[in-house]
């Protein structure tokens, strides 16, 4: 792995009201690759992802230890500029979260927030990013319609366009296809493959086949612990840890005889 490191996690631990969610995670996310974070539900994948843009700060009673460096800048330092960080990190949620406004305004939202008010440029950019998300052809005639009227798969592509419009460097996906039908999911996956030329992508998923299809690099998280990470092909073919091996072959992890606690 000679790729430049884009996000570096150092000894990260996170607690929710005293309950540990992540323990001593150290991980490097390479630049312009797709990194898949895999693991069973509730293992801390989403927590890890949401600490990259400090969205976990919204949780009541959250405590963080350790450091996260994005472009060698410590984003966990007090006084870190969170709006700038979050602009840099586009996040796709598990369920598409469209804002209560029109299709056009959803994409324009982020642009306006960051100071773009020129109608002409807004129009051009909205079209550009809707094309990039593969949604333009379907919505070009009804940009003024409420975004909530779109199908769930279209909504997720709209969210992708909205995220891309603020010109992030990293795309974070929190199981972004889990609420979608297979066809819509495939379209999102194809977008990701195209986007990794220009973006660093971190994808949380519990769909192993998706991780295999997309990931260059994979990390397996279990019970708040980073069990194993490495190039995806290697991790899937020759897992080193028995827990990883059990998980990717679809067995109960407990049956490996190792007590994860």
């Amino acid at each position: 792995m000679e790729a430049r490191t884009h996000i570096r996690v150092e000894d990260l631990s996170v607690w929710y009201g005293g309950h540990p969610a992540l323990k001593d995670v150290t991980l490097s996310i390479p630049d312009k690759k797709i990194t898949a974070i895999i693991g069973p539900s509730g293992c801390g994948k989403t927590t890890l992802l949401k600490s990259f843009n400090r969205l976990i700060d919204l949780q009541e009673g959250v405590r963080m230890e350790g450091r996260i460096l994005v472009d060698d800048e410590d984003i966990t330092a007090p006084g870190a500029d969170l709006t700038r960080l979050r602009k840099k990190m586009g996040l796709l949620f598990q369920r598409p979260q469209v804002l209560p406004m029109s299709i056009f305004e959803n994409v324009a939202y982020g642009l306006r927030i960051h100071g773009e008010n020129d109608r002409l440029r807004l129009g051009e950019k909205v079209e550009h990013y809707l094309r990039m998300a593969g949604l333009w052809a379907e919505v070009r005639d009804r940009l003024a319609a409420p975004a909530a009227k779109l199908s769930i798969g279209q909504q997720q592509r709209l969210c992708l366009a909205r995220g891309l419009a603020v010109e992030p460097e990293v795309i974070l996906g929190d199981e972004p296809t889990s609420a979608l039908d297979p066809h819509s999911a495939e379209r999102i996956e194809q977008r990701f493959l195209e986007l990794k030329r220009d973006y660093t992508i971190v994808l949380v998923t519990h769909i192993l086949r998706q991780a295999r299809r997309l990931a260059d690099y994979a990390a397996f998280v279990y019970m708040g612990e980073l069990v194993e990470h490495g190039p995806a092909a290697e991790l899937f073919a020759h897992p080193k840890d028995p827990r990883t091996e059990a998980y990717i072959s679809g067995r109960f992890i407990e049956s490996t005889g190792e007590d994860p606690d």
Binding site: N53, L55, L58, T83, R84, L85, R86, K87, K88, M89, G90, L91, F93, R95, Q97, V98, L99, P100, Y109, G110, R112, I113, H114, C159, R162, G163, V166
Partner: peptide, 22 residues
Amino acid sequence: PPEIREASLALGATRWQTTKKA
């Protein structure tokens, strides 16, 4: 829904922008 706030904040909006616009 808190997700609306999250979606807006995740785009780099401030609290006030999120409150006012979303």
